[in-house]
Amino acid sequence: MEQVVAVIVAKYNYWLYVILMMIGFYAMIGKRNLVKKLLGMNIFQTAIILLYVSTGVKRGAGIPILDKYEALKHGVDVAGVANPLPHVLMLTAIVVSVSVTGVALAILLRIYRRYGTLEEDEILEKIRQ
């Protein structure tokens, strides 16, 4: 039992992100309303972004903003600076998620304009008629 708790505490960030990701996943496949599906997709993306950012953390490291003249003169201690790469990748991923949300909302507006509803089963019924 203590070993299981030790494993969970050592990797508790992944546990939180998997739970968050599964909330989004359930909203995507279990809900009938298209807006709720879109919100589920946003939660899913947030979980992935948090997962990536958490991989950049180093124990005892500071932020990746250095003192310019100090760094030019004496060099940089790699262990003392957090990993900047996941931050960069997720910065672009956040903007992609905003674009995806915008396009999805536009398409939802078009669907509402045509079928008068955003419930999945009602739309399918109207398509079959």
């Binding site: 960030n13 950049g56 490291a61 030019l72 790699v78 990993n83 900047p84 790469l85």
Partner: peptide
């Protein structure tokens, strides 16, 4: 969590941190 020897922190990012400035 926060392992300094994790693969993400040892592959390319040390180059960025050392030579970035």
């Amino acid at each position: 969590w926060a392992d300094p020897q994790s693969p993400t922190s040892t592959h390319v990012s040390p180059y960025y941190i050392e030579h970035g400035v």
